[in-house]
């Protein structure tokens, strides 16, 4: 069945203009269809989609807390199994980077290790946006946030690297892990479809621009996310069963654009342009990742 003409995530929710999360959610649900139960970790998505007594969800939806969406999904799967209703029912978790890479990583790891038939979709806006742009382990190197402030003693912003959550999930040897970018919609859709066709735990790491936190023009969301992949900062790939040797790049930029093109339109990186060494460092990190991919050691 094709549900692409149907909307399971209703318009009228309270997301900021230019927020990428609703785009991600709406497309995942169109591919999943009506026989789906959604679990949501605490975060922007949960808050802007369910201001009581309204709900944007035309599917059964549950939010319990910040760190336990994966555990909740595990319980739902067990209940469906016990009732003999698991077959044909999708269980999809949506979590932000805080709820996935930080506070929720334990329950996510547990769900993956136990092998529950759940699709986990991370919408990674690279900081705690719901509470007002605080750094997370998923915030990239060099980004300003309200807890990685930039000043004379701290010219860089965030000094640590982004946690490679998708690699961590692939290391669990779960059947399917992918990165996806809604700016590359056919690739995004193919990955969601593939994930939904596989039994067991699946993890899709999507990049999700936050205009408020990334500090860019709301009309540029897709453009900037596209640059994330075209510069090679957010490569699109998939790994099955933890086979890192066969990481499949699903979009190969003919010529990677310089990282400046991605950094420049975002206010969170503005300070880096008076620290050109740091931009070179970011470029080197990107180049190193691709060199490692092309010539693994």
């Amino acid at each position: 069945m094709n549900y692409e003409d149907m909307e399971f995530f209703a318009p009228g929710h309270r997301a900021c203009a230019g927020c990428a999360a609703p785009i991600i959610v709406k497309w995942v649900l169109k591919l999943a269809g009506p026989n789906t139960i959604v679990v949501n970790a605490t975060g922007c998505l949960e808050v802007f989609s369910t201001p009581y007594p309204h709900s944007a969800w035309r599917l059964p939806w549950i939010h319990v807390a910040f760190e336990n969406a994966s555990a909740t999904a595990s319980g739902i799967e067990a209940a469906l199994k016990a009732m003999g209703k698991k077959e044909g029912t999708n269980i999809i978790v949506f979590g932000g980077d805080g709820g996935t890479s930080d506070i929720g990583i334990q329950s996510l790891s547990g769900m993956a290790e136990r092998g529950h038939d759940v699709l986990y979709v991370l919408y990674d806006n690279e900081a705690y946006m719901n509470t007002g742009i605080q750094r997370s382990s998923s915030t990239p190197f060099g980004a300003w946030t309200t807890t990685s402030q930039v000043g004379p003693s701290k010219p860089l912003g965030k000094e640590e690297f982004k946690k490679p959550i998708a690699d961590i999930m692939a290391a669990h040897k779960i059947p399917y892990v992918a990165t996806a970018n809604p700016a590359f919609l056919p690739d995004f859709k193919a990955k969601v479809q593939k994930a939904l066709s596989i039994k067991g735990p699946k993890f899709i790491h999507t990049i999700s621009s936050c205009t408020t936190g990334w500090r860019h023009d709301p009309s540029k969301t897709i453009e900037i996310m596209r640059l994330a992949t075209e510069t090679g900062i957010f490569p699109l790939w998939e790994i099955e069963n933890g086979d890192f040797g066969h990481r499949k790049i699903t979009y190969m930029p003919k010529q990677r654009k310089p990282v400046e093109e991605y950094l420049k339109p975002q206010g969170r990186f503005r300070h880096l342009f008076s620290e050109p060494e740091k931009i070179k460092e970011i470029q080197k990190m990107v180049d190193d990742w691709w060199a490692q991919y092309e010539h693994p050691q």
Binding site: I62, N68, S74, I76, A79, M83, S107, S109, R114
Partner: peptide, 27 residues
């Protein structure tokens, strides 16, 4: 005749119980 979930913490035990009970089974 039941599903036993050997979860990775007590926090997850009760969270999974919520998921199961919210789906409509005795937990």
């Amino acid at each position: 005749d039941a599903e036993f979930l050997p979860v990775e913490s007590e926090h997850s035990a009760l969270s999974a119980a919520i998921g199961a009970a919210a789906t409509g089974v005795r937990t």
